[in-house]
Amino acid sequence: MSRALALVFTASFGAMWSFYLLLSVVPRYATSHGAGGIGAGGMTGALMGATVAAELAVPRLVGRFGYRSVLAVGLVLLGLPALALRAATSLPAIAGICVIRGMGLAVLFVAGSALVPAIAPPARRAAALGVYGLVVGVPAVIALPLGLWLAERVGYAIVFVLAGGAALGGLAALPGVPTRTRAHAGAEAGRGVVAALRSPALAWPSAVFSLSAMAAGAVVTFLPLAVARGSGGLAASALFAQAASTAGARWWAGHHGDRHGSAGLLLPAVLLAAVGLSALTLVGRPIAVVLGMLVLGAGFGVAQNASLALMFEHAPPRDYDAVSAVWNIAYDTGLALGGAGFGVLAARTGYPAAFGVAGALVAAALVPAWRDRAWLRPVPDAPHCPRGYR
């Protein structure tokens, strides 16, 4: 592993610790200030909606200012507003902070995901993405349940300080991060986000992956609210199981992709996520909840790596920023729709039925992707394809 890659991983680790520490805490914090289920989901929707909007601009900002400066701004936007959450006691103020943090997330998601394949050797790209998935997944394993546990025992203020400090601490790694990569040194400019979305080889994998992100967005926002009162330990354990399964599956998918290709993993992975989400119809049974979250996490992790690796395999290095933006927009749109949309559904049907309906919708949405599956074919003659495709 190169020093530059290690520093990118370090900065990303701090950012993701901040993100996951508050992902389930902020909706619960909002309910303590009068938000109902729809309002709680709206906080996740505000966070991820702002992230999606900002991600459209990140490739252009990177092209103008370079990775290092843009990453610094992203860490500040993610960290400082977290410190201000304790003073936010109205729902508009909480949502406003979520919007600002979402802008910071956009930078970290897009720039980080683009830097890893740009720095890594082409033959080890999927494996490097797998390690990156492990680096950003470990905070989910620890910070996602830890945030809820700390909020219940020591209060929200401590959680907010820890989240802010984690993001701002990532600034220490940036001096060694490259400002430009070899892809940016060429005279030919890469495609923009809109142009990249016109390519089925990029649009379809991102759309399919977004379905698994919807499932994840629903559970991280509403599982703590769906389990019986007094079962905070169950919610934390289930979120831990899901995050650990996601990180491990993403790492495995990276190594599998370098050897055998990533195309065959994507559709089964999303179907697996749908099965795990549907299992939460038995939300009153602890074993079913934990097992369902394990299955969902495995599908989500494989879908993360397979979709991203597949998209990079179909794009030249100069397009990596746009590819990263498209993938992250799919990720964050899915999280936002899963959080906000599931809240509306659950308000009408109750949590158990909503989990079942949502799982069925995710599975059904795979049908058009399966019918038009030419985008899954590898590009064996492309010089940037990994070893498993030659």
Rank of each mutant, 00 (worst) to 15 (best):
S2P: 04
A6G: 08
F9T: 01
F9G: 00
F13P: 01
S18D: 10
L23P: 01
V25G: 05
Y29T: 07
A30C: 00
G34E: 00
G36K: 00
G37E: 02
G39A: 05
A40V: 00
G45H: 00
M48D: 01
A54V: 03
E55V: 02
P59C: 13
R60D: 14
V62E: 04
F65E: 04
V70C: 03
L71D: 02
L80K: 12
L85W: 04
A87P: 00
A87E: 10
S90T: 15
A93I: 08
I97H: 07
C98T: 09
S113H: 09
I119F: 04
G133P: 04
G133A: 11
V136T: 13
P139F: 05
V141K: 01
P145I: 00
L150N: 02
V159G: 06
G164W: 09
A166Y: 00
A167E: 11
L171I: 01
G176W: 09
G176C: 12
P178Y: 03
T181D: 03
A187R: 12
A187C: 05
E188C: 13
A195T: 08
L197H: 07
P205Q: 14
F222L: 06
A249M: 08
A253L: 12
A253P: 11
A253S: 14
G257P: 07
D258C: 06
D258R: 14
D258P: 12
H260E: 07
G261A: 07
L265G: 11
A274I: 10
V275R: 15
L280F: 12
L282K: 02
V283S: 00
V289H: 10
G301N: 05
V302L: 05
A303G: 10
A303T: 10
S307C: 10
A309I: 03
A315Y: 06
A315Q: 02
P317Q: 11
D321A: 10
A322Y: 09
N328Q: 04
A330M: 04
G339W: 01
F342L: 10
G343L: 09
G343H: 04
V344I: 14
A354V: 03
L366D: 05
V367M: 15
P368Y: 09
R371I: 08
A382S: 14
P383V: 00
C385W: 05
